[in-house]
Amino acid sequence: MTTYLTPQQLTDRTSAAVGAAVAAGRALGLTVTDPAVLHDVFSVVVHLAPSPVVARVPTVLPRPDDLAALDRRQRDELEVTQWLADRGVPVLAPSPLVPREPVRRDGFSMTFWAHAEENRDKEPDYAANSESIPDLHAALRDYPGRLEFLSSAEPWFVSEALPRLGQHPDLIGADDLERAHREWRVLEPLVRSRAAFEARFPGIGLQPVHGDCPPANIFAGVDGDRYSDFEMITLGPVEWDLAALGPELEAAYNRGARRNGMRELDEGVLRFVNAVGMLRIIATLTLVPQLPVLLDYLKPSVEQWRDTPFAGGLDS
């Protein structure tokens, strides 16, 4: 059976992340007397009060010990958000009070961001958010940094996770896991190879995209909405940022695309990214021992996946 972290172990991990963030902030010259945890799911996000700086400390990771890989991803995020901020795009920007680079401390790798006051009374409007994503895509088109093709799909993670899930029948049944393996054999070549993707979907341009459901990662600030959490920034089709969001939000995106003079979402590419997104959800079951509450969030998606066409219909 799967062994889950206990509530005390989860509390201890959060405390360790906060302690590392405080120590790192003080070492960088920040005054930190009243740290406050703002968010604690996949990362512990800490306001290093009274300094106007927020530390984000990833704690739930597929490879917790591979800080070098995390460091590379964090550097891409810091560079792209600063580049966007310099061009007036509303983003949560890196803090100007510390060097713009990840900091390692006590087994964690963290980044530092300018504190922004959240409008906690504002309910998310995912349709409006989706309609605004073409604005972000238009801004990202000219980003000069080098990004890997569909790195946010993390094909290595799916390839490692599916065999491991065979040891955890309490997380996924044998029939579901067998289907996931078969689907991945169809989808993996298109995820790993830009050439294979472009051959299957000719004429679909690639560009920098957010990589991690940007309509759900818009921060409601008291001074206006800001795009946030570019941890999965990648090179890919714009459809990747709308994976698994459904027809209503796809239509909202298309309205924004028309307003920007951009192409609308391609149905074939949507089927591809939706199918890959579902397999990433299956792979994420391997993180449940690190974050037990995840299981409640993932189960409905697994049930939905059973009713979807095999590999998004791409096997035909």
Score class of each variant (00 low, 15 high):
235 L>V: 07
233 I>N: 00
72 R>K: 10
109 S>G: 04
241 D>S: 07
170 D>K: 08
292 P>D: 08
91 V>D: 05
226 R>K: 15
44 V>R: 03
290 Q>K: 06
29 G>R: 14
119 N>R: 12
119 N>D: 15
158 V>C: 05
285 L>P: 03
231 E>L: 14
104 R>H: 15
141 R>Q: 14
1 M>S: 13
172 I>R: 09
265 L>N: 07
288 V>A: 09
20 A>W: 00
174 A>P: 12
159 S>M: 01
199 A>G: 06
257 A>K: 01
86 D>C: 01
128 A>M: 07
313 G>E: 04
126 Y>M: 10
222 V>N: 00
209 V>A: 01
293 V>M: 11
221 G>K: 11
84 L>W: 01
81 T>N: 10
62 P>H: 05
177 L>Q: 08
145 G>S: 09
150 L>D: 03
90 P>E: 10
276 V>T: 13
197 F>P: 04
3 T>F: 08
276 V>Q: 11
258 R>I: 04
66 D>E: 11
72 R>M: 06
37 V>N: 10
201 F>M: 03
97 L>V: 04
230 F>L: 14
199 A>C: 03
169 P>F: 12
155 P>R: 03
67 L>M: 09
124 P>G: 07
279 L>R: 11
301 S>N: 07
228 S>L: 11
238 V>R: 13
117 E>M: 05
254 N>I: 04
304 Q>H: 13
167 Q>T: 12
130 S>A: 15
269 V>L: 09
172 I>W: 11
289 P>E: 06
273 V>D: 08
75 R>E: 14
148 E>A: 11
156 W>A: 13
181 H>F: 15
132 S>M: 04
177 L>D: 14
74 Q>S: 12
106 D>R: 02
248 E>C: 06
36 A>H: 14
19 G>H: 01
97 L>Q: 14
288 V>Y: 05
33 T>G: 12
55 A>C: 08
197 F>L: 07
118 E>V: 09
125 D>G: 08
29 G>N: 11
7 P>H: 10
154 E>P: 03
10 L>G: 04
285 L>T: 02
169 P>S: 09
83 W>I: 08
153 A>R: 06
76 D>E: 15
241 D>W: 06
238 V>C: 00
124 P>A: 08
227 Y>F: 15
303 E>S: 11
71 D>G: 00
183 E>I: 07
229 D>H: 01
102 P>I: 11
312 G>D: 03
35 P>N: 07
214 P>S: 02
305 W>M: 07
264 E>G: 15
61 L>G: 02
265 L>F: 09
285 L>K: 09
220 A>Y: 12
254 N>M: 01
20 A>N: 06
143 Y>E: 08
38 L>Q: 13
41 V>W: 15
66 D>Y: 13
286 T>V: 14
262 M>H: 02
174 A>F: 15
27 A>P: 00
124 P>W: 13
